[in-house]
Design a protein around this nucleic acid. Structure first.
Ligand SMILES: [Mn+2]
Ligand SMILES: [Mn+2]
Length: 304
DNA sequence: GGAAGAG
DNA sequence: CTCTTCCAACGCGGT
DNA sequence: ACCGCG
């Protein structure tokens, strides 16, 4: 296969990766070739952690952060310091050829950092991870919408995607003027305010046995060298569900669920509707002003 | 999926 | 040569 | 200091 001026040999095209949906490795490679144009803007410039499944979804799968020596020289990469010493040489996926090469390496669930290579210490987005306690996806939709409303009050834009697994991710574009510790503390404070406003349904309680059926507002991703599943990544779950950017009005649909979009129906969606995240990079608002507004809300509502 | 070490 | 193993890591809270 | 989460 010739792509972007690179010739790639695709191996084991007929190997079954998803048995129930009868999706082969060749199908997966073809998926990434076709989705590249809409996916690349969201992964470009970011350290990428490879989630690989060489034996398809019936195998174990593993994370790999270090780019192997045998990868071709045209694949871009960036060295990042580890928090407790040492370093990692990460893949950076800036073009369709790399996406296809990774797919042939059985990496079909790439994860990406919340910061970009030119400013690794300052995230350009926050992520709130919303998973249902048990099976109640309506609670995930509720949490996402109330988060959206709170960020409206704070003057920040929000974007939402299915994770393709159990829940939703809410993304908040940031101005890269603040480090991870500052951004994470802000996200934790936002979660505390929201949990306090909706204490019957939401919680920031990490202990599972103290959540009592409430949805956990998970801010754990908002740290250095952490990563989240990339938009349009394929999850290692039967049916090949895809992490799919949504419009906010879709979150109000009671028929929405985390695995709503799959390798089988995603291109039908993409031909009908334009990229819901097209404006993401133009939606950066002032963190300073938002922090100030949140401080006022905390003083009024949290009381201690 | 591929490298490296053990046997 | 074949077979097995290895491929991540941050902050938090509790021991 | 180490373990178990997410
Ligand atoms: Mn999740
Ligand atoms: Mn979670």
């Amino acid at each position: 296969m010739k792509i972007g001026g690179h010739k790639l040999e695709i191996t084991h095209e007929d190997k079954i990766f998803f048995s129930k949906a009868k999706i082969t490795k060749g199908d997966v490679v073809d998926y990434f070739r076709r989705v590249a144009n809409v996916m690349l803007p969201h992964v470009r410039g970011r350290p990428l952690a490879m989630r690989r499944h060489p034996d398809g979804i019936k195998g174990e799968g593993f994370f790999q952060k270090e780019m192997p020596d045998y990868f071709p020289r045209w694949i871009q990469h960036v060295t990042t310091p580890r928090k407790e010493g040492g370093k990692v040489d990460n893949v950076v996926c800036n073009n369709a050829a790399t996406l296809v090469y990774l797919a042939n390496q059985a990496c079909f669930t790439p994860h990406v950092w919340l910061s970009r290579r030119d400013k690794l210490d300052c995230p350009d987005q926050l992520i709130f991870d919303l998973d249902p306690p048990g099976k109640k996806f309506a609670l995930v939709r509720f949490a996402a919408k109330t988060l959206h409303d709170l960020f409206d009050e704070l003057g920040l834009c929000t974007f939402v995607k299915t994770t393709g697994s159990r829940g939703l991710h809410v993304i908040v574009p940031l101005d890269r003027r603040h480090d991870f510790d500052t951004a994470r503390t802000f996200s934790q404070d936002v979660a505390c305010v929201l949990a306090h406003r909706h204490s019957k349904r939401l919680t920031v309680e990490p202990r599972k046995n103290k959540r009592r059926g409430r949805l956990y507002l998970d801010t754990a991703r908002n740290s250095y060298a952490q990563h989240a599943v990339a938009p349009y990544a394929v999850r290692a779950i039967e049916g090949a569900p895809i992490a799919t950017p949504l419009r906010w009005d879709e979150v109000s649909d009671s028929k929405l669920y985390a695995q709503r979009f799959t390798m089988k129906n995603i291109f039908q969606r993409l031909s009908r509707t334009s990229d819901p995240w097209k404006s993401l990079r133009r939606s950066v608002r002032s963190f300073k002003a938002a922090r100030k507004r949140l401080d006022a809300i905390m003083k009024k509502e949290l009381k201690k």
